[in-house]
Nucleic acid binder design. Structure first.
Length: 357
DNA sequence: TCGTAAATAT
DNA sequence: CATATTTACG
């Protein structure tokens, strides 16, 4: 039910280009559900990315993907699809032929199409593999991050609700894909998006209720806000476990033991990751500009030379609380440590030299 | 052609 | 065994 491709994350950092931080827009991480057409840009698991960076790392203009296959190149098949009519977009593209090597690995050549916004041209390569395509020359399309990027771009350009396979294909300008490929991908994309939004909605809901709880609690026992209290008692299982048992900051000031909460206690105790049904605590996260990354992820917390000042923390607390916990899409992990660190600096959070113990 | 769901391959 | 992708069908 919850199986979705890990490539539906929207954005994929280009490690070969530079800091992956560049590709991370933390603001987008917190897009609320009212943003219909936007999916949060989440960092993809570097491991997953690694796979792709290997095959296509160097080439800047690698219009030809020869990445490849083993020595076995038995036969190649030119697959022609009715989609050829779209070849007009890019002559070089249209000329590209999808080569399928029957024996071992196959390479599908996909050419980049100049982005409308004039972004730097990227190579888009799709590797199609199938071990036994004897008889059938159907090859599974390998939706690489780049390819998916193009896909998403096309979809968003058309509008999520208006996006239709044929149109998407046209916009993508990749001649070796069929409508069916797109349709299939679109199906999954929509499904993924649907669930993702649902999860975000739930998370936001819980976060909201947490806020209510916090307000009610802050009310000092006098439960004026009956609704809030009711919602709390009805919807929330009493939190009996110490916060640090469930949730730990990814980053703790130097000198502290990993796992030691370094963020303000009120935040930790009052706003733990919401127990969204179906989502394990460790799959929830939010980013705190001054504190770092908060997740429900248990385990050792990496240390790094960063220690937010109390002032910085206080200044940002309100903002943090307003941000909802977000569910990590399956196959994803929270932004890397470095990402957070750089983001902190980016936001002007003073970096205090670590106090060597 | 599209969208959905079942089938199938990895 | 999960799940990504293809294939079938209304």
């Amino acid at each position: 039910m919850e199986s979705y491709s890990t490539i539906f994350n929207g954005e994929f950092p280009d490690f070969s280009e530079g800091s992956l931080l560049e590709s991370i827009d933390f603001d987008d991480l917190f897009v609320s559900i009212d943003d219909e057409d936007v999916l949060p840009n989440l960092e993809m698991d570097p491991e997953i990315l690694a796979e792709f960076s290997v095959s296509g790392s160097g080439g800047e203009e690698s219009d030809v993907n020869t990445s490849v296959s083993n020595e076995k190149v038995e036969d190649s098949i030119h697959r022609k699809d009715e989609e050829d009519k779209f070849s007009g977009l890019d002559s070089s593209l249209s000329t590209r032929v999808e080569e399928i090597v029957s024996k071992r690995d196959e390479s599908v050549v996909v050419n980049p199409v100049p982005n409308k916004d004039g972004e730097k041209g990227r190579k888009s390569a799709a590797h199609a593999k199938n071990s036994n395509n004897q008889g059938k020359r159907k090859v599974k399309v390998d939706w690489t991050p780049e390819l998916h990027r193009r896909f998403v771009q096309a979809v968003e350009q058309l509008g999520v609700d208006k996006a239709v396979p044929s149109r998407i294909l046209e916009l993508m300008g990749i001649d070796c894909l069929t409508r069916h490929n797109i349709a299939s991908h679109l199906q999954k994309y929509r499904s993924h998006r649907k669930h993702l939004l649902a999860r975000e909605a739930e998370a936001a809901n819980w976060s909201q209720r947490r806020q209510m709880y916090g307000a009610a609690a802050a009310g000092g026992g006098c439960k004026r806000d009956i609704s809030a209290w009711h919602a709390l008692t009805m919807g929330f299982p009493p939190i009996t476990h110490p916060m640090h048992h469930q949730f730990r900051p990814l980053h703790v000031p130097n000198g502290l033991t990993p796992g030691t909460p370094c963020f303000p206690q009120p935040l930790a105790t009052r706003f733990p990751a919401p127990p969204v049904p179906g989502i394990p605590p460790h799959a929830m996260y939010k980013v705190d500009p001054s504190i770092g990354l908060l997740t429900g992820q248990p385990g050792p917390s990496p240390l790094f030379d960063f220690h937010p000042s109390k002032e910085s923390v206080d200044a940002v607390i309100g903002d943090v609380l307003s941000k909802p916990w977000l569910p990590l899409p399956l196959g994803l992990k929270a932004p890397a440590t470095d990402s957070v660190l750089v983001e902190l600096q980016k936001q002007g959070v003073p970096k205090i030299p670590p106090t060597r113990a």
